[in-house]
Design a protein around this nucleic acid. Structure first.
Length: 849
RNA sequence: GCGAGAGUGGCGGAAUUGGCAGACGCACUGGACUUAGGAUCCAGCGGGCAACCGUGGGGGUUCGAAUCCCCCCCCUCGCACCA
């Protein structure tokens, strides 16, 4: 019987849908719930192999736990707002909504063809008012709680995208989307107060054992908590200028203070400066350098004396105040106490401008060589520090802080690197911010009963600007408080807001009176397994954790962490091909004697390095073409077999052939033996003459369960391949043998099902199954069937394998030892006699001598 | 510079805890079937004639190390003047 995936795959996809095989029943079900979530796609138009990998991994997990008797929530939807829709609108003269909905339709049919076990009844698209109205409600409630504010601030600006970017969206000084250089710009911005949760976001990472360490570490670094002290220096006219330091123990070593040129005081200083023009030039130079966001490895430290001095809080000494180009305006207070002896940056600065270097920390066991050639930054013992002299660094930090507090000149303090989340986007295709500006009442939220603030979908684009910004019918409104004339906010929200709570909406996606039912969400959450790309380690995963905590505080949910287990899958990579300067698609090549040439013009082609599949390098394989050529089952199986999920996967056409061959091998051995299987339906069998094969089947069941549960799909599939190879080797003749053989074939089909769902479903039906294999209990093993009558013990002499012996399973240490002693290993013994015997039960016996 | 991860045959990758290194697949070689084979099935496949040698390199702990410890090399990723 021929294997025709193009016929049988659509058939089963329809059957699963008709039978509602993967419908989640929420609280109505008495089964235990399992929430399997994959990061939802942006509807760009076509799915790519990265999606196929992400969703194939999730699908195995979802199908497995479904068959293990869980009520599995496995939803899918669309992260549908975002810039590409606008770019497409400008280019193709279509409305972003039209483009987006068309893409969703397209990609949906692509996903369907891959046979993923989604509960399609829960599909959502974030660009629909039924979804974003609730986001607007959250926004208003956050505003009411003081978690939203608007402020003019210097922000990251991408000229090409004509919008603001969050800190998290700037990568190496460039826009995460379009790679153009990000500049700084002052603009009125809406912020979510994520910093109010900084401590909790950091602390709770320790309660996420199911998250990869590197992701937690990246979040820790991003939050960047530093403990230290805020210390008040006084200006000469008696005002306070506060610095933040993590090294209060070095306070007595301060010989100057550095300030960012963006500091508010800079203007005042400039106004009274003697060399005004020169200072202004310096400030402008540094400002524009910062604004340009250049990522230089180690640019030269530069400073400019402000002409002013500050009073040291302890000694009362006058120390000069400098502008310094390496001081960041938006970290700490924008002013830094400089301790050249114990901070490398300050040291370099002091050297350059001839400022004094005062040692106040000595290493414990030696004296520092003076003059210093570099800063001593390690902890040590305080020296030359008045009453603090003699205290070790850690103790000194406390003592100095206490002194400052007692004398009202400072405070113990914590500083975070994390900044508030700027969510305003000056673009059109996003969730409107539900605020109104009234000349009389100021900034006022839209009445909750008036939500949603609908984004007009029927728009025309002229140029890059957001159409609603020039659409009076949108922005002209009345004030919710006084009823007077008012203007709507025309900025929209960062699309990361939508993805911060979509997993909650999935729990109750059609609710039209609330974002979701609390009971449903509390029942279905947290996400048991979340899978997605590591590129979201900071941005999305930090925002969604923040949102969960906010929603908990607003009373919407009863938990504070959304995701129990996280898997970050690796990239899908492939070699690229280039003819001259031009990249070629793999299907534009022909291979002659193992060398690639361009089909178009016969030019020789160079093979590039293996890197992430991307359209720009044309090193892509189209999932649709894969499915058309091999079927979805083969595509999925290859992706899962080629590499473990967290690692990058190298696409290999030969590897796909191998997976295809294995699928056909299973298909052939089962379809060739259909009568035999039908003759022994669902017979648990016993080993008998096929004891080894029978045992291997049970061992394979155990192994595959294990491997799926720890995401080692490649080895799980390998185990099924082994069992299949073993089945090919036997020729059952007697009924007893046929009974075992039938059991083994059924087992193979059952185990392979989560990986290759369509062909196994077909085989199950062909062999007489009247139910859905996908809904059947996953194969189980009998512990007693795992063990044979005998076991093999490896015999080592001095740690080297010299023999293997077969003993009865029940053999004790003494019996194994006796069996080994009966043999002659004297030629391997160094001393000629046995000194010691080490026995590892059921595995190995090592003779030492 | 700091932090994390990795380095195993010709290739992708196996080896829950320190216990047979190289499962499984690809490529390759040989055989069977065949008018034919780029189909299918079967077999072989780290190096070395061997003793032996082999998990990036060097040292160590141990009866025993891919796995643990120390030093070094290389690659990937994240952060990068964060006071």
């Amino acid at each position: 019987m021929e294997y025709r995936p193009s016929e049988l795959e659509p058939k089963w996809q329809k059957k699963w849908m008709d039978d509602r095989a993967f419908t989640y029943h929420g609280r109505k079900s008495d089964k235990r719930k399992y929430y399997m979530l994959e990061m939802f796609p942006y509807p760009s138009g076509r799915i790519h192999m990265g999606h196929v990998r992400n969703y194939s991994i999730g699908d195995v997990v979802a199908r497995y736990w479904t068959r293990r008797g869980y009520n599995v929530l496995h939803p899918i939807g669309w992260d549908a707002f975002g810039l590409p829709a606008e770019n497409a609108a400008i280019e193709h003269k279509t409305a972003p909504a039209v483009w987006t909905y068309k893409n969703i339709d397209n990609m949906k049919s692509q996903l369907r063809k891959l046979g993923f076990s989604y509960d399609w009844e829960r599909e959502i698209a974030t660009c629909r008012p039924e979804y974003y109205r609730w986001e607007q409600l959250f926004f208003i409630e956050m505003w009411e709680k003081g978690l939203v504010y608007k402020k003019e601030s210097e922000v990251n600006w991408c000229d090409k995208c004509a919008t603001v970017l969050a800190n998290e969206q700037v990568e190496e000084g460039q826009c995460w989307r379009c790679d153009s250089t990000v500049t700084k710009k002052k603009i009125d911005q809406w912020f979510f107060k994520i910093t109010a949760y900084a401590d909790e976001l950091l602390r709770d990472l320790d309660d996420l054992p199911g998250w990869p360490d590197h992701v937690k570490e990246m979040q820790r670094n991003w939050i960047g908590k530093s403990e230290g002290a805020y210390i008040d220096f006084a200006t000469e006219d008696g005002r306070k200028l506060t610095v933040f330091t993590t090294r209060p123990d070095t306070l007595m070593g301060v010989t100057f203070v550095s300030m960012a040129v963006e500091h508010p005081l800079a203007n005042e200083i400039l106004a009274t400066a003697t060399e005004k023009q020169e200072m202004a030039a310096f400030i402008e130079e540094v400002r524009s350098f910062h604004a340009a966001n250049v990522r230089d490895d180690n640019y030269e430290k530069k400073g400019y004396f402000t002409g002013r001095h500050l009073i040291h809080p302890v000694t009362g000494a006058k120390v000069p105040l400098y502008f310094a180009n390496f001081v960041l305006a938006n970290y700490g207070t924008g002013v830094v106490m400089a301790v050249p002896a114990h901070d490398q940056r300050d040291f370099e600065f002091a050297q350059k401008y001839g400022l004094p270097v005062k040692v106040v920390i000595e290493p414990k066991d030696k004296k520092l060589d003076l003059p210093l050639t570099e800063a001593y930054t390690e902890p040590g013992v305080m020296t030359d520090s008045g009453e603090f002299t003699g205290a070790p660094s850690e103790e000194g930090k406390k003592k100095v802080s206490q002194w400052l507090v007692a004398h009202n000149k400072g405070a113990v303090g914590i500083n975070f690197r994390l900044r508030d989340w700027g969510i305003s986007r000056q673009r059109y295709w996003g969730c409107p911010i539900p605020m109104v500006k009234c000349d009389k009442c100021g900034m006022v939220p839209v009445k909750k009963s008036d939500l949603p603030v609908r984004l007009p979908e029927d728009v025309r684009f002229s140029g890059v600007n957001s159409p609603i910004k020039s659409m009076p019918s949108f922005y002209e409104t009345t004030c919710p408080t006084c009823g007077g004339k008012a203007v709507r906010e025309t900025d929209t929200m960062d699309t990361f807001v939508e993805s911060s709570w979509y997993h909650l909406r999935y729990c109750d996606p059609h609710n039209d009176t609330a974002p979701f039912d609390k009971g449903e969400v509390d029942h279905s959450m947290p996400v048991d397994q979340y899978i997605g790309g590591v590129e979201h380690a900071v941005m999305h995963l930090l925002y969604t954790r923040f949102f969960t905590k906010v929603l908990a505080d607003l009373g919407y949910v009863s938990f504070r962490e959304p995701v129990k287990n996280l898997l970050t899958q690796g990239m899908v990579c492939m070699e690229s091909y280039k003819a001259g300067d031009e990249y070629l698609y793999p299907e534009e090549l022909e291979w002659r004697d193992g060398k690639p040439f361009s089909i178009k013009n016969g030019a020789p082609v160079t093979v590039g390095r293996i890197e992430k599949m991307s359209k720009s390098k044309k090193n892509v394989i189209d999932p649709d073409k894969m499915v058309a050529k091999y079927g979805a089952d083969t595509a999925r199986l290859f992706i899962l077999f080629a590499s473990p999920p967290e690692k990058d996967l190298e696409w290999s056409a030969d590897g796909v052939e191998g997976s295809s061959r294995f699928i056909a091998r299973v298909w052939n051995i089962v379809t060739d033996n259909l009568d035999l299987i039908r003759a022994f339906p669902d017979d648990p069998a016993e080993g008998g003459p096929f004891a080894d094969l029978f045992r291997k089947a049970h061992q394979t069941i155990q192994k595959v369960r294990d491997e799926i549960e720890r995401f080692h799909f490649n080895t799980g599939i390998a185990a099924i391949m082994e069992l299949t190879n073993a089945a090919y080797k036997v020729k059952p003749a007697t009924d007893e043998e046929k009974r075992v053989f039938a059991f083994v074939l059924r087992t193979i089909v059952g185990l392979l099902n989560p990986f290759a769902p369509h062909m196994t479903e077909e085989l199950h039906a062909l062999r007489g199954g009247t139910d859905l294999l996908s809904a059947r209990a996953f194969p189980d093993f009998r512990p007693d069937a795992l063990i044979g009558d005998t076991k093999e013990i490896v015999v080592q002499v001095n740690g080297k394998v010299r023999d293997k012996i077969i003993v009865p399973t029940t053999a004790t240490k003494e019996e194994v030892e006796a069996a080994v002693r009966a043999k002659d290993f004297s030629k391997f013994l160094n001393s000629g006699s046995i000194k010691k015997i080490i026995y590892v039960p059921d595995k190995l016996l090592n003779v030492v001598g």
